[in-house]
Design a protein around this nucleic acid. Structure first.
Lengths: 183, 183
DNA sequence: GCGCTAACTGGACGCACCGTCTCGTTTGAT
DNA sequence: ATCAAACGAGACGGTGCGTCCAGTTAGCGC
């Protein structure tokens, strides 16, 4: 496989490119030129620009803990509020947002990429939230985790509305209300 | 603008292409050839393949009522169940799914397309659901509509899991429970 | 240190599409 | 019949694709 130094050069290049131009027109040739690497080297390890972007994203969330940690203070409402705010901050972070959008776009037509994204990033996130809920004795933790995360991603992916802070508060309140209602 | 006959030829061509090949490699030149139309004609009316796909999708949902109608039988639970099933059927319909995925993918980097999609398809859908909820005296109809739709799209867009029928039932139950809980 | 293998650079290849342009033709309303 | 708008056909330079080749480093075993 690729040497570590090569990997880093490619990651740096792709992150730099993502910052300065539309992600849509990031190309293999562009990355190769920017990283000072031959196209051959890129194709040896990655099959598409989407794969490179994802790899860069993954390396980033592995090194500096870019991954959102689920808080557990005992207070469910304030923990969910913190979590929602942190998630939204990550989704709208100027350096991450274009990468995440590009990868989710590629996912729509690339099954392998979709599987990786699901298993390495989304799955752990959902399981982390579900575990926090389970620890708080919330019934149906998996379903509730989806209920919590779903509307946030709906807004982000379909770009229906920006994240007003009042909406975030109301959303958290809805989740809390739904779990405290036990018929 | 384009004549109606031209529009139809282009729509037919793009739908045919979407059926037989990966949506990702639908091209302007391919559409032009298939529709028996010059590239000039395409560029005169549409700016990208994404725009053409969206236009075809819109025409489709305008003609034959492909649009999901919000049911109103008086029974909230069964109406939501019907609505969820219909929405999922539309999202996973073999002829629509690739188109929808292609458009949502393009949306991620095309603001104009995102705006159109939001205002012409997603907005009306959300408003329709919210109105049904409002009519049923559900408090916070807008928020609840997002709570209902969010997790469905989350599964579909991020392809976390298929739509098991038990999940749909459970999801509807969660929504119903959340609205009947008034603190 | 020597040598072998895997990873690399640099560049060339044919090909598909891009987006724009020109020119001549058809269409349909007045 | 007239005339402008919409159209078909096809050529243009340009860009990125994915693959191939030949020659060059880098690192690990002995």
């Amino acid at each position: 496989m690729a040497r570590q130094q090569t990997r880093s050069k490619v990651h740096d290049a792709v992150l730099a490119l993502a910052r300065e131009k539309r992600v849509g027109n990031i190309t293999m040739e562009g990355i190769a030129a920017r990283a000072g690497v031959s196209k051959q080297t890129l194709y040896r390890t990655w099959s598409s620009t989407g794969a490179i972007l994802f790899d860069a994203l993954l390396a980033r969330s592995a090194n500096e803990d870019g991954a959102v940690v689920v808080p557990d203070s005992g207070n469910l409402a304030s923990d969910l509020q913190t979590l929602a705010t942190a998630t939204i901050a990550e989704l709208t972070d100027p350096t991450q947002e274009p990468l995440l959008r590009a990868v989710t776009a590629d996912m729509q037509s690339d099954d392998a990429l979709a599987t990786q994204f699901r298993e390495l990033l989304l799955g752990p996130q959902l399981r982390g939230i579900a575990n926090r809920l389970r620890q708080g004795n919330v019934p149906d933790p998996d379903g509730t985790a989806e209920l919590f995360v779903g509307p946030i991603f709906h807004r982000w992916l379909l770009r229906t509305r920006p994240f007003e802070s009042e909406w975030v508060t109301a959303h958290v309140a809805r989740i809390v209300r739904s779990v405290s209602a036990h018929g």
